[in-house]
């Protein structure tokens, strides 16, 4: 074990405590401010009220934005699940020239700044496709989101495939199963939980994305983050943003809880 003096232990503990306070105080302030009766977030809060909660739940733009976020997230996740799994199989089961490049290509969309991805796709949509009569519209967002979601599925499925023993699949083929039967009955159940975990992460990433969305959303269409951003730029309606942010914070606990459960299932099996 690492032997540290008492002073060093206390010093390290203090750093950890300060970091945690810095991480959670701002989030707590948002939650408290969602109950602030004032129009603008402030501290200390003079009067508490549920007014903004009521207004947020009745708001038509928020509902529309939420629906858009869910639709885009589901579309992008479906594409990412397919493409990410295909690449994971290719890179895990075969060795070929350019393997490193394919790996880099999958990572690139999240390694490069979002503004670059957004501007590049915006340029393709508006300067190249529109002049020849192709309007990507709503699909522009889904295409953009799917591109940077692939890596989430890829990482999860690839890591799982690496640990699978090929013996089971060989046994299945020796016993006369067709390749499709082997995949459906033997291979897929073995990486299913990684597949689902990757899908959840992809959806969460898409749901949270704002920069690429700014440049690829068709005019007049808001996702939830876009709606929030527009509200933040408009100082008068600030308090409703805190309500939406509080709901997002609460919902963000769901994927964490789910991936913890899936993670436990994985470690139980090991």
């Amino acid at each position: 074990m690492l032997r540290l003096s008492r002073g060093a232990r206390i010093g390290l503990g203090t750093i950890v405590a300060v970091v945690l306070v810095f991480m959670y105080t701002p989030l707590l302030l948002v939650v408290l401010n969602s109950f602030n009766a004032a129009r603008i977030a402030s501290w200390p809060i003079r009067e508490f009220s549920l007014e903004w909660w009521g207004k947020a739940f009745a708001s038509e733009p928020i509902r529309a934005a939420l629906l858009n976020s869910v639709l885009v997230g589901l579309g992008a996740t479906a594409v990412a699940l397919l493409l990410g799994t295909l690449v994971a199989f290719a890179l895990q089961r075969y060795s070929f020239f350019g393997k490193q490049s394919v790996n880099l290509l999958v990572v690139l969309p999240i390694a490069l700044p979002g503004v670059v991805t957004g501007v590049a796709l915006n340029n393709t949509y508006n300067q190249l496709l529109e002049p020849i009569g192709i309007q990507v519209g709503y699909f522009g967002m889904i295409i953009a989101h799917a591109t940077f979601c692939i890596v989430m599925v890829f990482n999860n499925v690839f890591a799982r495939l690496r640990r699978l023993s090929p013996n089971v699949e060989e046994a299945s083929r020796d016993l006369g199963a067709t390749p499709w039967q082997t995949f459906r009955l033997i291979t897929f159940p073995q990486f299913r939980s990684a597949f689902i975990a990757g899908g959840i992460l992809a959806f969460a990433l898409s749901f949270d994305e704002v920069v690429v969305t700014i440049f690829t959303a068709p005019p007049g269409v808001d996702t939830l983050p876009l709606w929030m951003m527009n509200q933040m730029a408009r100082p008068n309606e600030a308090s409703m943003v805190n309500v939406v942010a509080t709901v997002v914070i609460l919902f963000s606990l769901l994927p964490v809880w789910a991936s913890q459960r899936l993670g436990r299932e994985i470690s139980d099996r090991d």
Binding site: P26, L29, V30, P225, M229, M232, N242, A245, I249, S252
Partner: peptide, 16 residues
């Protein structure tokens, strides 16, 4: 945990 709390939510939180 805060990793999933939302990018804009965190910027809003720092703003507040």
């Amino acid at each position: 945990l805060p990793l999933w709390a939302g990018y804009l939510v965190k910027i809003l939180a720092m703003r507040v």
